[in-house]
Design a protein around this nucleic acid. Sequence first.
RNA 1: GGCGCGUUCGUCUAUCGGUUUAGGACGCGGCCCUCUCAAGGCCGAAAGACGGGUUCGACUCCCGUACGCGCUGCCA
Length: 449
Amino acid sequence: MSVRVRFAPSPTGYLHIGGARTALFNWLYARHCGGKLVLRIEDTDAARNTQEATDAILNGLRWLGLAWDEGPLTGDATGAGRGDRGPYFQSQRRENYQRRVEALLQHDLAYERDGAIRFRMRREATVFEDLIVGEVRRELTDREQEDPDFVIVRSDGQPVFHLTNVVDDLEMGITHVIRGEDHLSNTPKHIALFEAFGVPAPKYAHIPLILNPNGSKMSKRDEGASLQTYVEEGYAPEAVLNYLCLLGWSPKDNQEFLNADELVERFDLPQVLRHNARFDLAKLQWMNGQYLARLNDDRFHELCVHALGRAGIDTNRFPVAYVKAALDTCRGKLKTFSELPGYAGFYFADAVEYDPEAARTQFVAEARPRLLRLREAYAGLGDFNAGMLEAQLKNTAGELGVKAGVLVHPVRLACTGKTSGPSLYHLLEVLGKARVLELLDRALAAIPG
RNA sequence: GGCGCGUUCGUCUAUCGGUUUAGGACGCGGCCCUCUCAAGGCCGAAAGACGGGUUCGACUCCCGUACGCGCUGCCA
């Protein structure tokens, strides 16, 4: 029997980082086994589930590159889907639940009380084998000792999670349920429901949770909990994917950089760790920087242009060769693309704005004659390339009897407005002679004395 | 409270009873490189929660305690 797994998020407004990893593990397992990944939207709570919320999930999964074999195509619950086990929105499956509940009622496996329908739960401990956790033996809690039955349909007619989840997994032919460990304690209920429906329960694999840096459960409002944050801050999806799978899973050989193909090849359920992991933003940032440095030129340029565009910088106003040359000076310098506008914005700005603090320390009277000297030297340069620019600057510094840095800092400030940025000589080369001389003249005019 | 799961450097992890002075990575500190900021190179500090067993031998197996997380809802 071929493997069928599913990712079944509830549209709460965005894709949670923990949910993204659950989706990732499901996707990896499906691909690893040559099985299918089903995406199901658990939107039974109509009041707070909107199409935008579902779109956020779909877009998040697409951004990560996690394609599903069956499921919705858009966030529209009544819209088209792919696959023959739909609908894939729970809000469209009311009849399925009703039919199943009728059957339960008829066989006296459920009963009505106070207007709600309750399932007759077994009255003893449940033992099951979890693919990750191992054998789990769950005794009845004190509350369950008194009354183990639980509600499957509310008095307002709404079916509850335990019921819909099981009915859908059953009808969608799910063979492996890979989900967060927060569901481990619910599993006996689900197994009992499957048995009541006369079918064996699927195999279960509960993955550990992702915690905040302080060890608390990462949820909703927590910093960095939304995948959208990483999309917006210019992370490379391949880096986020790589980092996420290292939370709770390890290739065991100290290799940390794995692309999607390698992950699919090596991922398997038994190697998933059993304990929760804390989310470490610093390591994600480092890893993202590594990915950025290794991206091929086209992809790097593409993502750069995108990031600049988001910041309101339109690179289309400039020659393609200029843009590429400018961006090349940023290679290996960024940890995230959100840093790019501030780092390379000067290449595309009409006027340079001097950092006030830096201007106060660099644009002082003594700097004026030195800058003037360099300006004249640069004006006489035929070949305006990095090598020549460096040689000339050092030469001028020598004549002035100062260290190179004494010239470097004011020149950088004059041309970029900042105290840090790409390699000075390379940046000057990209800017070009005319522009550099113009910028130096402007700086000279701004320096007192 | 009850039930379940977990516990190796600050963090992510390797180790699946002896090959280990417990390895790698992030972060942190130092040095080098250097036009700034990064990157890169080198070096360093840093861990088996605690207590009992089992065993010739335990981080690794068992029990207890502590701590953490989860579930305990007519939320999902």
